[in-house]
C-alpha cells in the first residue's frame, strides 16, 4: 500500500503549478492518501496482457488539410487578456 508523504504532496503541487499552504498540504496528504488507497482496489484484478483503453472509438490519426484559414484577429486574441503591451500578452520578467 502506497502512503503519500507531505513532501510528495508539495512536489505534486509544484508539478501541477499550484501554490499550497501548510494547512492545504496537511489536508491533501490525508485526502489524496485516502483516494489512492481506495484506487488500490484495482490491484485485485490481474490485468496481465489486457490492452489499455485510451479511447473507446476506433479512430486513428484523424487529419485535415494543412491549409491556412481565417480565425481570430490579434485584437480579438488579446480581448480577454489580463495584461498586454504592444499587441502582445504581458508576463513577468523571465530572463534577468
Amino acid at each position: 500500500m502506497t502512503d503519500i508523504s507531505k513532501d510528495q504532496v508539495r512536489h505534486v503541487a509544484h508539478l501541477a503549478r499550484l501554490a499550497v499552504s501548510e494547512e492545504e498540504v496537511d489536508r491533501m496528504t490525508k485526502q489524496l492518501g485516502d483516494i489512492i488507497h481506495y484506487a488500490e482496489l484495482l490491484n485485485e484484478l490481474d490485468t496481465t496482457g489486457v490492452e489499455p483503453t485510451t479511447h473507446v472509438l476506433d479512430l486513428k490519426n484523424v487529419m485535415r488539410k494543412d491549409e491556412p484559414r481565417k480565425w481570430i484577429t490579434r485584437e480579438d486574441a488579446l480581448k480577454n487578456a489580463p495584461d498586454q503591451k504592444d499587441g502582445q500578452f504581458k508576463v513577468p520578467t523571465i530572463l534577468e
Binding site: A39, L42, N43, L45, T47, V50, E51, P52, T53, T54, V56
Partner: peptide, 10 residues
C-alpha cells in the same frame, strides 16, 4: 492500470 480496467469494463 486504470486504462486496463477500463478495457475490462467495456
Amino acid at each position: 492500470k486504470a486504462q486496463q480496467v477500463r478495457t475490462l469494463i467495456k
